[in-house]
Design a protein around this nucleic acid. Structure first.
Lengths: 189, 189, 189, 189
DNA sequence: CATGAATGAGTATTCATTCAT
DNA sequence: GATGAATGAATACTCATTCAT
């Protein structure tokens, strides 16, 4: 429950953006959701684009940090995989709007400058992890694609009702699936 | 090089839609690309929405058929997996605009009626395939998420330059990756 | 049942104009009703305006002649009034589209040049009649307003269901009403 | 001279509508007349249709009230007829735009829901009046048609210069004309 | 800080008219 | 005579942004 108007704007904007899309969300929509008028938005942000950018940077940062801290707590490969996959889905389940919002940017080249200058994109956590475990015998780019693609699609299937397990089961099943894949590859190597 | 105006409209619209997004593409953009005036578009389509729908239905159908025919030519599980994964990436590489356009609809609830009435969505081919091979020990919904999510993400990584193999190598690597996963699961079972 | 295309165009245009209004009727509407294409209309008329003008001139002329010939058959004031009022309503009942179409022009200064050059407007028949019967003691302009206004409004009330007599009764009642008015004024004079 | 923008819009729109017709009046026309831009109109009204509806409801209500209060001040039939006919013409002379605008709706079925829910249409005042005086021997529907039709047409003839009396004289003559009609009928009965 | 009116540049869509076939 | 594709100007409406209060 953010108190300050600026945060309330970001909070509501994120919800509407992820539901309706960025372009189809108007400043008026956001203002109405926050309970202020259109003009007031411009006390806090210079433009709609700035709201979008703030949101993307915030969310990416948050997701990045979330993944990173989950990873850092792990003692071994198995635990790391567990922490990382659970953190990934946990973020998606807890912040579906932010999660979907971040993913919008893979399809729209809305603003490529948005990439954080020091490369702190969520996927980089995953990539670095697999890069430091080349012994599993999968090229880290492909491992990353497998990890992110699978989890993201599982989340989407969950959201559209195609997968109807409860969140905890999904996290458990997803972890086991990934573990099987990477363990067997590791052993097979 | 489609000759007829209607096809030229669809052709150009698809390209622009997949690059800029549907909402940010104007009728004027399309008209200019085709080399006619805005009004002329409306001799061929009643509305922008109709162009979007036509495109979605066409592309989905095409992709569905492409996957289906690849699958039907296979004699066994391994071959089926090979044909299916190659057909999937082949479609993405050959028709990147259509492929990206179809995927737009996972994020935007633009029009859920758009789903083909008899459920002939591309993902259903994959789902049915895994459903008839439950011996691999992976719940078909999760197997589908894994298959589609991984390949889609590989394609995206390729497009953004994060993966820089050539298309043939990607197809080969992707197939091997998937085969390893499903074979080992099959054997482990 | 006009055979020639030109007449069919006029025929259908009149119907649609009087129902939807001139501005809201498109060339396409007319073409569709006639069973030809838009371009073909322009083989017969230079513009939409020309169709409107032709229609107005034709209808006015027709109505004018209809009233005039009814009047000319009368032997005395009473008969003249009877013939004129019956002819007026008869025209409205038989050609409601044309009748309503003519009346559109009282409200819109769509094109004042449309008035027939030699003044052959339907109302002039009525006006001339009352002018030649000043003995009734009503200024002919007012008598004309009374005659036309009353009958037109009766027709409108009939059309909107506010008056629900059958057409014959309306003609009879209207005639008696007018006769009473003008006879008593005549006698009172 | 209304000060507030919303009222200025209604004021100017009424003038232009009654001159050019509703369909041929553009939002730009109205905006220009008010001295604002097109977009500004939409801060005050959701659509052109809403302007039309507001205007129709306002004008009808105003005219209805005008007639009703004139009628209620009368002590007897003669006075009532005098008050009603004078109020009718007075409204037309004073608010020619509103008067003509209201009458547009007899010819165009623009929106039949526009009729006030409790039936408070101007003509109803006249109708109720004649209904409570059936002793005059004229069916109230026909008396209403006579009253309204005659006065409306007199106004139109005045506007087009066909009747060139001054307004006061017209009111006087119209009243006498109607009085003669209804009095003689009353006596004749 | 906030309001709400206003701007101005779009945006999809309509439609009378033209013209090559 | 007729077709149907195309034009081009107009039209209602939208929306990010500005600004006086």
């Amino acid at each position: 429950m953010p108190r300050r108007t600026r945060n309330r704007i970001l909070h509501e904007a994120l919800k509407i953006f992820s539901n309706k899309g960025i372009r189809e969300t108007t400043i008026k929509d956001i203002a109405r959701a926050v309970g202020i008028t259109e003009g007031a938005i411009y006390r806090h942000f210079d433009s709609k684009e700035q709201i979008v950018k703030s949101l993307f940077l915030n969310s990416s940062q948050e997701f990045y940090t979330h993944l990173n801290s989950a990873l850092s707590k792990a003692q071994n490969f198995e635990e790391a995989l567990k922490n990382l996959s659970e953190a990934f889905l946990n973020y998606a389940f807890t912040n579906p709007e932010a999660f979907k919002f971040i993913n919008l940017f893979h399809y729209f080249k809305i603003d490529y400058e948005l990439r954080l200058k020091d490369g702190k994109m969520p996927k980089d956590v995953v990539y670095e992890f697999f890069k430091s475990h080349e012994e599993i015998g999968i090229q880290p780019e492909y491992a990353t694609a497998l990890f992110i693609g699978t989890l993201e699609r599982i989340f989407l299937f969950y959201e559209m009702g195609f997968i109807d397990d409860i969140e905890e089961d999904i996290q458990e099943k997803a972890y086991r699936l990934l573990l099987n894949i990477f363990k067997s590859n590791k052993e097979g190597a």
